[in-house]
Design a binder for these strands. Structure first.
Lengths: 231, 231
DNA sequence: TACCTGAATATGTAATACTTAATGCAGCTG
DNA sequence: CAGCTGCATTAAGTATTACATATTCAGGTA
């Protein structure tokens, strides 16, 4: 008998609660009926009755969807579907201190990958005005006297690149990941002495001005080389 | 009086429920006390009493955190913090049909950016075995007779690249975004006649074998050029 | 010692009642 | 008739209570 018991001990992980099931039901409901943002969804009581569960459980499921920005609710009007922010879910989880070391490292790698690949978006969408801003940041950096100020410029420069890429989702992605980047940069700075890549910010700006899309990826690679070498 | 009314009409959006507040309280609690995965968190009743709300509200908040994989609960042991999957939140939201056109487009751009920038991870981590698999895919593709089969190979090839990058988070990211990519590819294929970039999969494999990290980004850019031109 | 049993405990679910905000309708007033 | 007032209605938010279920632990028995 103890043997049988052991066999069953492998299973019980797959336990799903009523709230989980209701949540999935609602997802399917939304997808199958191709409900669009602005459209109403059934009342809490209706859902509860239809699925044969307590209103309590339904509220838990709805609460989750609301957190993700998939639905909104008004006191009498009921609940309506909304266009969710795709990056909302990421934002809710990412906090440097609760992520373990290896995940932080992976996210940082992700950043390096993004910046090297960013070129084509930049060249298609950059504006004169944005290039001027980059110039200003580079200038500020060269005049900087403190380490703090230099790091600020570093962050501003790379943030500006994401903005220039003209992709709202990507920009938001970077914004969410920023705290993680800072965390890693601080960590790395303790290892070696802030070694700088052979390509500077000024060099990168020059390439952008020159419309040299071919040169960009490898220039950025060289700029980021100190980080890449940590991989 | 109607003027005053208009002034106030701008405000009422900022409504937060008890569940929202409890959720935030719990987040702070976890962060401030730097609770680590495996550590227990207070019982539902304790939280409810401490914050002066009903257990119901607490459960809604906990339910949300559980969905994101931040906590797990066992019948008696109480609830413990777990290492969340950073990409879980994304997975919960992303479904091609509920994302609007512009967001899908932005995610697809994100993919292009990633693949161009992927080089340095690939060259540092690729194994002989993985390269052989790429060879096999290319061979399969060349023998393919149907369009369906060719598309399968296309997907397999690019998926394999992400796998080779040896970054679990990135790989998962790609996995989640896949349905969106397929959606866009299908859309594009209606526009022009599946124009192929001047660099083939076989060319890319050759570069990987040759350990030519400098050549990779621009080769991939050329490979993806048909997509890039849609930007 | 090994096994069974039952109490204690914390989460999961249900049911009910009340509060609050928004909406609409009906009726009143000018 | 127009416009305002106020009441009824509706649906979400919150609270309370009770019970089900599973897990842990301690204590008793062979």
């Amino acid at each position: 008998m103890s043997i049988e018991k052991d066999l069953f001990k492998l299973k019980p992980i797959a336990y799903t609660t009523m709230a989980d099931q209701v949540e999935n039901h609602l997802r399917e409901y939304i997808i199958k009926r191709s409900i669009k943002p602005g459209d109403p969804i059934p009342k809490e009581t209706e859902i509860a009755q239809a699925l044969g569960v307590s209103r309590n459980v339904v509220r838990e499921a709805l609460s989750r969807l609301r957190m993700l920005g998939m639905i909104e609710s008004r006191k009498k009007r009921g609940m309506i579907l909304t266009q969710p922010d795709v990056m909302k879910g990421l934002e809710l989880i990412i906090h440097p201190t609760i992520l373990d070391e290896s995940v932080r490292k992976q996210l940082f790698e992700l950043r390096l990958v993004l910046e090297v690949g960013l070129g084509d978006l930049l060249f298609r969408r950059k504006t004169e005005e944005q290039l001027k801003k980059l110039d200003a940041i580079v200038e500020r950096e060269q005049k900087a006297t403190t380490q703090i100020e230099r790091i600020r410029c570093e962050v501003d420069f790379h943030s500006m690149l994401y903005e220039m890429a003209g992709n709202e989702t990507l920009h938001r992605f970077q914004d969410i990941l920023m705290p993680v980047f800072e965390y890693v940069v601080e960590y790395e700075s303790k290892l070696d002495h802030t070694s700088v890549g052979s390509v500077t910010h000024a060099d990168l700006v020059k390439i952008l001005y020159a419309n040299n899309a071919e040169a960009y990826p490898n220039a950025m690679r060289k700029h980021l080389m100190p980080h890449l070498d940590h991989l």
